[in-house]
Structure formats: C-alpha cells, structure tokens
Nucleic acid binder design. Sequence first.
DNA 1: ACCGAAAACTGAGAATAGCTCGCATTATTG
DNA 2: CAATAATGCGAGCTATTCTCAGTTTTCGGT
Lengths: 211, 211
Amino acid sequence: MLTPRKQPRQQRSRETVEAILEAAAQLFQRHGYAGTTTNKIAERAGVSIGSLYQYFPNKDALLVALAEHYLDRSAEQVGRVFARAAERRPCLPDLLADLVGEVAALHTDRPALHRLLYDQAPRTPGLVSRFRQAERRIAGALADELRRLGAGGPDPGLSALLAVQGIEAQLHGALLEPQDDGDTDARLRAVTRLWHRALAEPGAANPPHRP
Amino acid sequence: MLTPRKQPRQQRSRETVEAILEAAAQLFQRHGYAGTTTNKIAERAGVSIGSLYQYFPNKDALLVALAEHYLDRSAEQVGRVFARAAERRPCLPDLLADLVGEVAALHTDRPALHRLLYDQAPRTPGLVSRFRQAERRIAGALADELRRLGAGGPDPGLSALLAVQGIEAQLHGALLEPQDDGDTDARLRAVTRLWHRALAEPGAANPPHRP
DNA sequence: ACCGAAAACTGAGAATAGCTCGCATTATTG
DNA sequence: CAATAATGCGAGCTATTCTCAGTTTTCGGT
C-alpha cells in the first residue's frame, strides 16, 4: 500500500498533509532518504508521528507522493514543448533543441529533488512504472512529431521511445554528476546534434548552422 | 565507510567472506535488498552476525562488494568486444551490433543480479563513481574505434560517452521491464541502427542489409 | 612439540527507527 | 447543543542494524 490510507477532508488536515510533504521534501533533500527518519519529518512539520501515519501508510509513500507532484510538473513542462510544436511546426533540429533544453531545465531547476527521485525511484516498486508511464507519454508525443516530419525511420514510435530514454540518461550524466569536464551548453548541443542525426531521414537537408 | 574494515588473511576467513557474499547475493535476489536482514545473511552463510560485521562495516558494503565483482566481470566481457575489434577491424555497423549484443547479454545473463545492482546502486556514493568509471572506460575504447573509422563527428570522445550512456539506458528499458511489447531482437536491431545513424559520417556508405 | 600472539569467530543485547493503538481534542451536522 | 465524525497525539511495541567482551582457532618462532 503506497497511496494515502485516508483522504483529508477538512481544511486543517489538508494543511497537515502539506506540512508533512514540505518537511519530507526538505529533509530528504538535505540528509538523503535513509538519513531521514519519519519522526524527524513529523517533528519538523509540527505534527505528531501518529498524524503522519494517518495519511501515509509508510515512509515510501512520502516519496511516492513527492514523485507524483514532481511528475505532474514535469509532464506539464515537457508538454509545453509539444504545444509549441503543434503551433509553430518547427523543423527537426529546432524541435529537438527545444525538447533537450526543457528536459535539461527539469534537471537543473531543482537538482536535489530530481536526484533524490532518480536515485530512490528504483527502490520503490510503484515508482518505476510511474516513471515509465511518463516516458511513454512523452515518447508518444514525440513520435507524432516525427511522423509529421517524416523522420524516425520505419518505426517512429520505437525511435521516439529510444530517444526519450537516451536523452534522459545522457542529460542525467551531464548535469547531475559533479565532475563536469567541458561546459554544459556544449554537452546539450552535442546531445541535440546526435539525436538529429539519429532521427533525420538520410536524404533530408542538414540543420541550418547558427554562428 | 563502505570498504571492508578488515582484510581476511587466513584461508578460513577468505572462505567466510565468500560464503557471506554468496548468501547475500542469493537472498538479495530472492527477497530484495530491504527484505533481507543481515542476520539472515549470516545465518545462511553459516557464520555469526559478528563475523559478518568484522568484514563488512554495514549492509550497504555487501552490495558494494557484489557490485564490484559484477563490474569486473562486465568490464571483461565488454572488453572482449574491443579486443575483437582490434583484431578484425569491423565496419561501424558490425562493431555496434557486437557492442549492443554484448551489453544486452550482460542484462539477460543474470537479470536478477543486474536489476538488483542497477536498482540499488545509486543509493551509495561509492558505487556511482565506480559505475561512471566503467562507463568511461568503455566510452574511451569506443572513441578509439570511432576515430579509426572516421566516425563520431567532431568530438568522438563525447559522442562515445553519450552512446554508452544511451545504449545502457535503452537496453535496460527494453530488457528489464516486464511488459515487452514487441520482440527483444527487433529492439536490439533498432538500437544498433539508431546508433549507426547517429555516429556514422553523413557521406559514409549505409550498412549492408541482412535478410 | 609447545607457547604466545594474532587472527577469526561468537551471540547476547544496546541502539535506533518504523510503525501501532487507545485515547484526547477539534470540527460538523441536524 | 448533543451526537457523531474527523483529526491529532505520543508512549511504546517490534524489528533490524550493529557493537563488544570474551572464546576459539591458526601460525610463527624456538
């Protein structure tokens, strides 16, 4: 059981839940998941440990709740890339640059939170499938754009999924690891260029250079 | 402290350490990391809990030791790809097919162990850097091959690193997630083809088709 | 062979952290 | 203004990691 065991109905309890999640986010980010006790979370939230367990069946459930907030925000942010694409109908390089930039922003906006979830998600059974689900949604939207552009080879759906998985891993490696040999912007451009080559039809025109 | 606190010097103690690691591997794979207690590991290994903590300062250290064994084996296996390449000097598609196949074999050989380490590894600081180090070693060897083939764009070193990160993530997604929509072999071929496009020089010949 | 020292082993229990449960307090309803 | 429901409380139960003082085994030197 990873979902709240009881829905807060009154205003007071909704504030309690908010305070608990806020405290959990802060302490998890500062001391890591294992280094944070549920008693400390309750204390910092200004509620008793009993109240915490009234809304969250166990410690993992706190993480799942934080992840869901984060995934919602992320889906919305990446969704804007495709909203823009539907309107402006960009060429492949521009679309990829926008996507890479937005995913990079997800990492750099709140690096500690992103890292926390990325590190802990695999440990928590329910979270992996939620992340995969988000991945699929983004891949689906990307696949539609690839089809519009005549890119992505014989199976744009599969290509899009591989691209999303690859981009996420590459940006995670580039942005969340301390030793950053080479500047970040160059790394982002390299990722963009690489995926343009991977996804573009061989006959298509090359991307326009910008000095 | 994640490294053994005491080096086993006598034959007897080396066998004790082996038994502990063997028991840990079995129980972790069967019941997961959190579901396995150090007392159960000691019991199955046929030693007392005190002996376990004489060689491993904490539970995480067991995981680190298992991961190091596994990483050594993996480095050796992937190293063979480049040993073959140095001898036979394959074309880019063949090299990539060999690399993808070998990395896929790492996942499918002992899926439970791979998953265990992949899932739990990020939790411990020491392991992340070990994984990155292995990643870099493979990327370095791939970069040399790309240079030989005149592939990988203006910065073959960076392209190789992005390729290794991408391939690992894509194969993990393809091979370790339960719902496998589409057969695995097709997925491997798609990954290979995608990276061929990404890394090949635009002017170079296309890969030979094999029906 | 024997002895002293070092290495290895033991397991009860100290320390700690997740979580429960019975009861007190506050809000809502009719 | 009861009566009922929702929320809050925290001492303490349980389970697990890890320690330590004492015992047993191995080994090098004579």
